[in-house]
Design a protein around this nucleic acid. Structure first.
Lengths: 345, 345
DNA sequence: TTGTATGCGTTATCAT
DNA sequence: ATGATAACGCATACAA
């Protein structure tokens, strides 16, 4: 296409009225043409639209119709985890005729409120919220208005709301039992932020495995990593300074695992010879390392699919239906990072 | 906060009229309160808003004011590269009072047109476009209307438009010269999609290094990877089947590099003992591998900062100013993946 | 500083 | 299937 000229200043887009005039029909007819209904002279209208460079103003339309065909998505960031869920969700929404309006929020309550205000201000038809556990006043206000809402991964305590979550506890127990089965008795855990449901559950799974096996639970082997790479690094550092040293580490999410890997590498502690490692979350990285990291893999595509399905059903529900709760299983992917511990000297 | 009750059906949000009535003032006064202007009885209005659960309808406001204070961002996906630029851009925009409306597009022209229509339909004040080289009819139409636009990484040929790009060619040449300096004479390249400006430039940089050094350019050592992980894998496979085999590989983006790493691992070809590797783009992964991968690192934070700055200046420009073109330098980060080639047997 | 009236571009309604 | 017109919720200009 030739791009020959360009308006010097942003020009006001043509309106439906101008299109109607140019096409010699009424605005009602143009409106119906735009919305795919049958009209008598489509070609005239099409030509007028083309000629005038008309772009429908979705804002104006939504004001009147009270529907934006848009779902707001609220995520803390665009990391690998959320990125993949976002991609799936946006895709499924589109196929159902909805668009996704994605906003990220920082740690502060204020940032979250602003994000919520933005989405509600733009009159999204529904709201999908990822990884949010803490209450928030704005969000609670929106919730009370009856806004269709779906959470994935975690949701505020006591809210009766649609949600899609993975089973964290049992799968962690099974992963720990794998370590115990091959001889580990000193297993360290790098925990996420305690108080966040998924991380509480993962810690509980870790403990359950110890209880089931009759192993003691050593507080020195439970180090908080707060979900970040940096704190994962420091938690690993503390773990490797504990006495007796753990012969295996379980890291509760992939960001912290990256920190753990960094620490182990700096201290020249080799996997799996010197220590075994299991991580929650599977990312490309872990399969490519040598050895590959054994992981508990969340079904990201399924989370995206389910949370979208739940939202779409909520949006199309004619009457009140009780909130649905979907629980998905994780897979344990065995790679080379776990091995029986070295014999004590 | 207690979440005691919830509306059974999505309830229409209160309007500014209802707030005005409840607060015993006029809508004009409420409007000014909302927009931060001084009013006589702010507390009454605040209380009414709180009481009614009022959320300002940004759609209605924008329709009238013809400004959304929103910038559309168009990216192909949420991969690490774009994710980090998005995070920075959204942040800088927010500080300037703008919101980001992010949309992804698939490979098809149709998908891109839909994304453009969505953004323009929502009357974004400006448009930031990432990694787009091919022309697109919808985008060209929008461009001609004078919509403020800024591209990063690449832009359609012949468009006189704001852009932020990195220097691809010379830095690639320098990276190749590093390989040549330590003795490599058979260097393979996994190219991105030819025809895309950055990838054309990287290939040219690769060739220039050969020309400068008086080395032959072997077509068998240039394999297309099309920017994807899978094709990077296959390109590496072809390279390692070439005769003579390359002693070093340059991979033109990180997705393809992951494919290359996978292939090398499967064929048990060790880095750097059996082959040296340099990748364009730096991601966490590459620093954590053993050995770390030597990379050409794009200044992601700077790209985000500059493209936002350029956009904001364009938005605030009172009159026509000529398009600006920003060119940023990349850094070569030497890690352990490059070493002199093994002596031929 | 306040209230009133008008305009924004679209969809919904209803009579034709 | 079409045209005319009300309605949507807010910002803005203007008069007070």
């Amino acid at each position: 296409m030739e791009v020959t000229s360009r308006a010097k200043k942003p020009s006001r887009s043509a309106t439906i009225v101008e299109v109607a005039t140019a096409a010699n029909v009424s605005i009602g007819t143009v409106s119906r043409y735009i919305n795919g209904l049958s009209v008598r002279k489509p070609e005239q209208i099409r030509a007028a639209i083309e000629e005038l460079g008309y772009f429908r103003n979705a804002l104006a339309g939504s004001i009147r119709s009270r529907a934006t065909k848009t779902v707001g998505i609220l995520v803390p960031n665009f990391d690998e985890f959320h990125a993949r869920i976002l991609a799936g969700t946006a895709n499924h929404l589109r196929q159902a005729g909805y668009s996704a309006l994605t906003v990220t929020y920082a740690d502060t309550a204020n940032s979250l409120s602003e994000a919520v205000d933005f989405l509600v201000g733009h009159r999204v038809d529904g709201l999908i919220v990822g990884n949010l556990s803490a209450e928030n006043k704005s969000l609670a206000k929106v919730f009370q208005t009856g806004m269709p809402m779906a959470f994935y991964n975690t949701h505020p305590d006591g809210w009766s709301v649609d949600r899609v979550e993975v089973e964290n506890c049992d799968v962690t127990t099974r992963a720990m039992e794998h370590l115990i089965d091959i001889g580990h008795t000193h297993i360290g855990i790098v925990t996420g932020t305690i108080g966040q449901r998924p991380h509480d559950e993962r810690l509980r799974g870790y403990r359950n495995a110890h209880i089931n096996a009759g192993l003691p639970i050593d507080p020195a082997l439970q180090q908080p990593g707060n979900g970040t790479r940096r704190e994962g690094y420091e938690a690993a550092n503390r773990l490797m300074s504990a006495s007796p040293q753990p012969t295996a580490i379980f890291s509760s999410n992939y960001q912290m695992t990256i920190g753990v890997l960094q620490l182990l590498r700096e201290r020249n502690i080799r996997i799996p010879d010197d220590i075994s490692l299991i991580s929650f979350d599977d990312v490309d990285l872990f399969a490519l390392l040598d050895p590959g990291i054994t992981v508990i893999a969340q079904p990201l595509a399924d989370i995206a699919k389910e949370v979208t399905r739940v939202m779409l059903e909520r949006l199309s529900a004619q009457q009140m239906v009780p909130p649905v709760s979907v629980r998905l299983d994780c897979n344990i992917v065995l790679r080379g990072s776990t091995r029986p511990p070295k014999k004590a000297d």
